[in-house]
Simulated scan of single mutants.
Amino acid sequence: MTDAPRDLGRDLARIAIFAALIIVLGTVTIPLPAGVPITAQTLGVMLAGTVLGPRKGPLAVLLVLVLAAIGLPVLAGGRGGLGVLVGPTAGYMLGWIFGVIVIGLIVRSGRLTWWRTAIGTVVGGILVVYLFGIPVQSLVLGVDLLPTAASTVVFLPGDLLKAAAATALTLALAKAYPPAFGGSIRLERTRARAA
């Protein structure tokens, strides 16, 4: 008898849990006049990348975006519907997909360490998301790219805090419950201390 159905069930459950986490974190939101709210949803995206990795993490994000597309209020501020996917935040949501892949690739490129996790969350969870989000926001709002990029500076401190939180939570989860990573993470070896 094979464990494939059991493994598939576990993977689907983990993807669903992280999709739900992304949705729940979207309830923590601060609207801004620029049209892109400050939200904790990106923390969920970062965690999906660090814990689920580059193959399953994007599936959690895609699940959230599909639910949004069919009209469920799963995005920041209870938004949903196809209109959200073509609005000023559309590029950021597209960036989530690629960002979670980059996070997973960096974090899984070796043993799980705080510095690899921090680099992954900053590069994938901030830089990649901004690289997709800023041009689309500029296009949708009809504002030049440079002022749009400058307007995102207000998000950077919060995003850096979320990257730090994602790093700390990932390392704590790895220590407390390694099976959350689906057996696909190499934990940093701790040096045995002399008694």
Rank of each mutant, 00 (worst) to 15 (best):
A192N: 08
L21Q: 03
L52A: 09
Q137D: 09
V143L: 09
G125Q: 09
I97H: 10
F181Y: 06
D144Q: 14
G49C: 05
G26D: 03
V36R: 00
G182Y: 02
D159I: 13
A176D: 13
G80I: 08
P73W: 03
T170Q: 04
S109N: 10
I185F: 07
V45H: 01
L47G: 03
K56E: 03
L161N: 11
I97V: 15
P58Q: 05
L173R: 06
T39W: 00
L67P: 02
R14S: 13
A174I: 09
V128H: 10
L12Y: 00
L160D: 11
L82Q: 10
D144P: 14
I30Y: 02
A34H: 00
I22M: 04
P37E: 08
T39Q: 08
G57F: 02
F98Q: 04
V74I: 04
A176G: 10
L82W: 10
L105F: 04
P58K: 08
G124H: 07
L139P: 00
T39P: 01
V66R: 01
R116G: 11
L160N: 10
P54Y: 00
L171M: 15
Y177N: 15
A20K: 03
R111K: 15
P157F: 01
S184D: 11
A180F: 12
A69W: 10
A172L: 15
T2V: 02
G95H: 09
R108H: 13
T190G: 12
L156V: 15
A165H: 06
A76F: 04
A60C: 07
A4L: 12
L94P: 10
V24L: 15
A192L: 15
R79Q: 14
R193A: 15
L145D: 00
G91A: 06
T190F: 11
V123H: 06
V107R: 01
T50Q: 02
T152P: 00
A164R: 01
I103V: 14
P73C: 05
W114Q: 10
K162T: 04
R10H: 10
T117R: 07
G124E: 03
G104Y: 02
G44N: 04
V86H: 04
R6Y: 01
A163N: 08
G71M: 03
L67Y: 04
G87A: 14
W96F: 14
P135Y: 12
T89P: 09
T113L: 00
A48V: 07
A90K: 05
P37D: 06
A16M: 02
L82M: 14
G104K: 04
A13Y: 01
V143F: 03
L32T: 09
G120K: 06
E188M: 14
P58E: 06
K175Y: 13
V154F: 06
L171I: 14
V28Q: 11
S151L: 08
G81Q: 02
I97A: 10
P135V: 12
L43S: 04
G71Y: 01
P5D: 07
I126F: 09
T2I: 05
T27Y: 13
V123D: 11
V64K: 01
L12V: 04
A13K: 02
V122C: 05
E188D: 15
T29N: 12
V66S: 09
T29Y: 06
T27I: 11
G49S: 06
A40W: 01
V122L: 11
A118V: 12
